[in-house]
Deep mutational scan, measured.
Amino acid sequence: MSIQHFRVALIPFFAAFCLPVFAHPETLVKVKDAEDQLGARVGYIELDLNSGKILESFRPEERFPMMSTFKVLLCGAVLSRVDAGQEQLGRRIHYSQNDLVEYSPVTEKHLTDGMTVRELCSAAITMSDNTAANLLLTTIGGPKELTAFLHNMGDHVTRLDRWEPELNEAIPNDERDTTMPAAMATTLRKLLTGELLTLASRQQLIDWMEADKVAGPLLRSALPAGWFIADKSGASERGSRGIIAALGPDGKPSRIVVIYTTGSQATMDERNRQIAEIGASLIKHW
């Protein structure tokens, strides 16, 4: 067993022997300050990975656009099909120029040879490739089937209704393509630590998230040396920005953090900075 597999395998073990964890309200002060700075709603939740206990939250049951954070859930659904023998990570999918949508930095380079399901999930999570996400959605039956998968997991909140890039419209009070911080955190925890996926698939999912290449300005920018993070960011219209992450010190994840914001007129750089500052406060008061 590799060191990485050993780390994931021990998560349920540590759950039975973990020391108590305590929240620090200073982080919530920073979350509220971020709302003021951005002139927008901010949703935040911090969940103990082992016990599932909510350590701190702000607007945990308000809806926010999922943006590209849905791609982790999508690849979780794909992996569940792999575990059930209904899909193969090595299966090659061919597509055409007509399938390409905006922001497809990986898939646009493989029009001649296609990409495997594994490569598409990697592109969707690590590079947030939109065409990769659409091709993967097709393999499971579309957005409604992803919503059904989540319902079967016990998540009756999170929903995907449209494809890339339309799902990023982020219209106020529109429940399409939205989640709540509490629902997303719970669902992510189930995918990473529960029995829904095999150990190999849980490890694959967290490996893809750990290799995320487009979330550098967010929580990763505040991460001390030696800390672990596996994450997925998202951005969409109407000043929306978000990130879902499993992180912790000593090279292993111990908490789930979900941050969403929407309705801001601030620049992308400012939205990134506010999320990074929330992360810095979280780490300082860990």
Results as ranks from 00 to 15, higher is better:
S2N: 08
S2R: 11
I3F: 15
Q4S: 12
H5D: 07
H5E: 07
R7D: 08
R7Q: 14
A9G: 13
L10F: 13
L10C: 12
L10H: 07
P12Y: 13
F13Y: 13
F13P: 08
A16E: 05
C18T: 15
C18S: 11
V21G: 08
H24K: 09
H24T: 08
E26R: 04
E26D: 10
T27V: 12
V31G: 00
D33C: 06
A34V: 09
A34G: 03
D36N: 14
D36E: 15
A40T: 05
R41L: 10
V42M: 07
Y44W: 01
D48A: 05
N50G: 14
S51N: 08
S51A: 07
G52D: 04
K53C: 10
E56C: 05
E56D: 09
E56V: 04
P60F: 03
E61D: 12
E61A: 13
E61L: 15
F64C: 00
M66S: 01
S68C: 00
F70S: 05
V72C: 02
L73C: 05
L73S: 08
G76A: 12
V78A: 03
V82M: 03
D83E: 08
G85Y: 07
G85E: 09
Q86G: 11
Q86H: 13
E87D: 08
Q88F: 14
Q88P: 01
Q88S: 14
H94I: 15
S96C: 08
N98G: 14
D99V: 11
V101D: 11
E102A: 14
Y103G: 07
P105Q: 02
E108R: 05
H110Q: 10
L111I: 15
D113A: 10
R118W: 15
S122M: 15
A123S: 09
M127K: 07
M127W: 15
S128N: 00
T131G: 08
A133S: 09
N134T: 01
N134A: 01
L135T: 05
T138S: 15
T139M: 10
E145V: 11
E145Q: 14
A148S: 15
A148V: 13
L150T: 05
M153A: 13
M153W: 05
M153L: 13
G154R: 02
D155E: 00
V157A: 14
D161Q: 02
P165A: 04
E166P: 02
E166T: 08
E166L: 08
E169K: 10
E169W: 08
E169D: 10
E169A: 12
A170S: 08
I171G: 12
P172S: 09
N173C: 13
N173L: 12
E175C: 10
E175A: 12
R176L: 08
D177N: 02
D177E: 03
T178G: 01
M180W: 10
A182D: 07
A182G: 13
A182V: 12
A183S: 09
M184V: 04
K190S: 11
L191K: 00
T193I: 15
L197I: 06
T198L: 08
T198A: 11
T198H: 13
L199G: 15
A200H: 12
S201I: 09
S201G: 09
R202T: 12
Q203E: 09
D207L: 13
E210D: 04
E210G: 06
A211K: 12
D212N: 14
V214E: 04
A215Q: 03
G216A: 10
G216D: 10
L218C: 03
L219I: 14
A222E: 12
A222R: 14
L223D: 00
L223C: 09
A225C: 13
A225Y: 11
G226A: 04
W227M: 01
I229D: 00
D231Y: 02
D231V: 02
G234C: 04
R238Y: 12
R238Q: 13
R238F: 11
R238S: 14
R238T: 14
G239V: 01
S240P: 02
S240I: 13
S240T: 06
G242Q: 00
G242D: 02
I243C: 03
I243V: 10
I243F: 03
I244N: 00
I244M: 04
A246L: 13
A246I: 12
L247P: 05
G248A: 00
D250K: 10
D250G: 14
D250I: 04
D250F: 11
K252H: 10
K252R: 11
P253R: 04
P253Q: 04
S254N: 09
S254C: 10
G263E: 05
G263R: 06
Q265P: 12
T267G: 12
T267N: 12
T267Y: 04
M268I: 09
M268L: 13
M268F: 05
M268H: 05
D269Y: 06
R271Q: 14
R273S: 09
I275F: 13
E277G: 09
S281E: 14
L282V: 12
H285Y: 14
